[in-house]
Amino acid sequence: MSAIYILDRVKLRPGQLQAYQQTLREGYLPGARKRGMELIGSWTTPPVEVAEGNELVTLWSLPSIESFWAMRAGSGAPELATWWEESDRLVESRERKFMTPAEIS
């Protein structure tokens, strides 16, 4: 079984890019790593902060389906629910997609 990738696309409220990056780094990333999620990268678009609000795209990976379910076993933790509730105040909308590698050549 190949790796599983998790793609987060977060449309931020205007002016919240820095605050969201900070809470993601300090409030989410350590716990995510403990649950086996590896941060592949994080990007913002447009590539400069704009008044309308930016989108933050974050890509995570898990090495296997077993590690996916191990990660999910911790996703109901109350402190995680609190983090999502608080960070969602900075967010207009978001989505989380689950992916596997695709061959295109």
Binding site: I65, W69, R72, S75, L80, S93, R94, R96, F98, M99
Partner: peptide
């Protein structure tokens, strides 16, 4: 895990 679980996953907006 790719389509169904998100309906159950507290981290997923759906």
């Amino acid at each position: 895990w790719g389509l169904v679980d998100g309906w159950f996953d507290p981290e997923c907006p759906q």
